[in-house]
Design a protein around this nucleic acid. Sequence first.
DNA 1: CGGCATCCGTGACGATACTG
DNA 2: CAGTATCGTCACGGATGCCG
Lengths: 209, 209
Amino acid sequence: MSPRRSYDQYCSAARALDLVGDRWTLLIVRELLAGPRRYTDLHADLPGVSTDVLASRLKDMERDGLTSRRRLPPPGAVYVYELTSRGRQLLPVLQALGEWGQSELGERRPTDAVRAHWFALPLLRALEGEEGLVEVRLEEGDFHLRVGAEEGPVYGDGPAPREANARLQLDAETCAAVAGGELRLLDAVRAGRVTVTGEGTLAKALREA
Amino acid sequence: MSPRRSYDQYCSAARALDLVGDRWTLLIVRELLAGPRRYTDLHADLPGVSTDVLASRLKDMERDGLTSRRRLPPPGAVYVYELTSRGRQLLPVLQALGEWGQSELGERRPTDAVRAHWFALPLLRALEGEEGLVEVRLEEGDFHLRVGAEEGPVYGDGPAPREANARLQLDAETCAAVAGGELRLLDAVRAGRVTVTGEGTLAKALREA
DNA sequence: CGGCATCCGTGACGATACTG
DNA sequence: CAGTATCGTCACGGATGCCG
């Protein structure tokens, strides 16, 4: 655990970077926006991070009030890490970064790792104004979005824990285009590139189009 | 100049961090949002950065299309660094960071450096929806805001280069409160904590209140 | 003097091995 | 499974030197 290296500037952006400017920190936040995760799962979805750095960051973040560590009730009884309310407020930061980085994304490089839920953040932007639980199925895996959620995780890895208001099945290319704003979700549905199921308002509205 | 260390993740936020995640990079962007700056001025307004790191970052940023280096016409004939259009698009990232970091700001610590124009970013948010050239005078120094500017720098160090639409004179504490959203600018004017001069629409509207 | 390049000590990082 | 220990490497911060 580092003794907190600071920029020592009386500036709110610099203060923010004191807390989340270290390598890997914001990507750990991205992972935890999907809800509580175990150490091993975090390590698996952050390829390249070394075990000691991950452990150190998690301690720093807990000390700084961004995350908390909790022991699940038996059976299981493993530790999970989750964002505090303060940590969840970093969502706009990650969205601004993601929006800016969208144009750098381009084609997938052979060295690039991919996880399905990495599309959740930009997709959440594309669904702004909507509401409900949306399940997304890609070849690379499934995840779900809690669109318009006021508290708790804003998205999650794997299928939705309860019946989703809408289920979308699409390929990664379509997903990237929608996430990047090049293609509106409605147009993607019209073009037959998205299969919509479910009985929620959003699902019906999308099918009507 | 580093050979570009990458997270190697097919994720737009990770791509953004590949380019602006290094220490000091986003603070250099904050400085350059104030318009073209010389190396020495950048070094003076980024206390703590070492000369080689600053030079290295500036090269990285130029290579990555965030900044450009330009020689001023004689007399003067010095080099200045400025943001490209792509670099200026990082404004929302810095604003999101600044907004999040606002609650960490608190009192000024004895070790904290301050520059007047570090208040420009949050003040710009407080004036969202307005338009025009606003000059701000603090004890710590002067700066000006190009509120609603579509292109070019969004703020600048020192007094406004031409007659401002509004001039605000206030103290740092009031400025921090307004920037932090705890106090609306209108209420600050009403409380007599801001002296408004100038003949623009904004100046008149503020004085009327 | 402004604009770096070089050198050096320290600490952060990344990979691997190992342990409760 | 969830980290800690170890170690080589690289990035950072501070000082100093060089060159136009």
